[in-house]
Design a binder for these strands. Structure first.
Lengths: 195, 195, 195, 195
DNA sequence: CATGAATGAGGGTTCATTCAT
DNA sequence: GATGAATGAACCCTCATTCAT
């Protein structure tokens, strides 16, 4: 089982750097420190390896966010923690972050399985949003769109920062995205009226 | 020049369907209705063709949004029109929409040139946002993040709908995203205080 | 079309020498004097190439025997000519002869298609035998077995001689096999009784 | 020694089904119910295993025919019994039958060793034929060709029947082949003259 | 004796690119 | 301008063999 772990790490690195199609199994093997045959001893092939990577990674992300979320019962607070947890996870797993977003937009053969894999994660966000709506803390809106747009916002900005190679100021980014998502871009004063 | 147009269309289709790496020049030629040699007569090669596609497409998108934006002087109204224009453009150019988002996440070799290509578009969004901040209609925030997160939200949700194969209700989607982006997910009542 | 001919020749040589499975496409290309890619430009792949070879070769053999046979109306004479024609053909196409017999015994995936290909040839032999039986020149017997056993006798002995690298004495071998097939191994005297 | 027996059986099955080259040591191990390493503990390698299989099998066949033959002193009767014994053996060892015939036509590397292995068997047939000629029961003919053509006839027809998956009617097939080999395809009446 | 994880040379196939026509 | 036959580097994968346990 030692080698399987090595392969996982090496594969994430290579796939993140080169993309799924341009990455070669040769390079995965080399970067993992195992022989090419070993890849095929542990995984069925390239596509199988990719699927495993995505499932494993999204599983970890989901669990990570789940834990963060469960530390509060308040939907809005859960939202903040979920955003923060996603940012932290992406920051800690920069390669996987790239991998994930590549997977999301990948070829339609893979799109289907990725969509299934991602669904677990989206469902979790939807639960939070639905709870927020039920508690009258969030306005009524299509929960699916709301979840997807949240994911889009958070990940696209996170990745942008990651790709610039800069360290992420997690607090600052969380705060920005939380504010943005919850209260939007308009001036608070304006919203709160001229009483 | 007739052939070049054919190639453009065929290439967009094929690349959108298969992704940049899985699409073959053979298939591009076939779908374009030209011989393979002709591709190389008009374009330097695969990467050159891809770059041309992206520049051309993003140019069209930018121009499309630019026009929509210029119909109003009010930054907030410009924002609404920009969002709507992007949605309309994506809806009218579904293949290119997929292409664009694939390009964004593509291999780091291409990422650099794509980032440059996209910059024109982001700049435009930033201008609007900066103007909004200057006019005290939007709250102060990092304009780059604001632009990127807007783009992320709009495109990720648009693509999601497109991929589901459903027709887009442009008005409804625009309204949702505009509201979401400007006022966020929280209840308006709460924001507007208890006057 | 020039290259296709080259490939045919090279492929027959290599497959005959190494067998279908041990022969490599690399070697076929090299021996044909074309690049490896060219093989795949002209043929779908290894299996396709093999199938083409067999069909083409058996077609030629069948036609060759057909012509020889048609020079006489007498079934027994046709039989003699068919045997001779097969021996001549094998002697002239020693590589293909080996190929053919390898194909016959090959893996069950290929066995099916080979059996179909061979059927054309067997049918021809059966026709001759059936005619002989109808004309009371041959004894009544299951025509399929008779055809197959004829083919087995002729080819197995031919190949044995070919593999020993000796030149075939076509007349002598034809005579032996014709006598053997028609009158068997027993003494003519014995058969013709002690009148 | 238990394992060696298991391997023998599994190997015969797999090699007969897939052919020597397409069969893998993995599958032999699996079908034998032993670990892959065990194969290499008992046999030197794949080629060694193949050679062992062939020698063992041909040895059994030779012995089987030897016994049948020895039950009569008459060369012609010996011939009949030899044919029958070969058919019975093939029928009882269908997998080996396929294996044997695959081996005969195999790659020239193996052809040499197979030819040596088969020689024992051919020698036996030649002995019978030579005795028949000496006793004036068979006509004078090259004993090698006579033996090889006998083998070819019997085995090619036997395998044909086996591959069709039909049960062999041993008596009927023996009779046909014996008649065919001894008296040929021509009408007996014609042969026995018009006394 | 027996095992099975690990290996890496080698095979079939793909595909961007070239060039003679 | 346009073509398509030809190319060969590079890829994914297989499988006989080894060796530490």
């Amino acid at each position: 089982m030692r080698k399987a772990k090595q392969i996982f790490q090496g594969a994430v690195d290579v796939f993140a750097e080169k993309g799924f199609d341009r990455a070669t199994m040769d390079e995965v093997a080399e970067r993992s420190g195992v022989a090419k045959g070993t890849l095929y001893y542990h995984f069925g092939g390239k596509e199988d390896l990719i699927r495993f990577l995505m499932e494993e990674g999204v599983g970890q992300l989901t669990e990570h966010v789940e834990q963060a979320r469960n530390q509060s019962a308040d939907p809005v607070e859960q939202l903040r923690r979920a955003i923060e947890a996603q940012i932290v996870f992406f920051d800690q797993n920069r390669e996987f972050c790239q991998l994930l977003l590549k997977g999301v937009w990948s070829t339609s053969d893979r799109q289907i399985q990725f969509r299934e894999i991602m669904q677990k994660y989206f469902n979790q966000l939807q639960e939070i949003i639905d709870a927020g709506i039920a508690h009258k803390q969030l306005r009524a809106m299509p929960a699916e769109w709301a979840a997807v747009s949240l994911f889009g916002m958070v990940s696209i900005v996170s990745l942008r920062v990651i790709l610039q190679g800069r360290p992420i100021d997690r607090k600052e980014l969380t705060e920005f995205l939380f504010q943005q998502y919850l209260y939007g871009a308009s001036l608070p004063e304006e919203k709160q009226g001229t009483c």
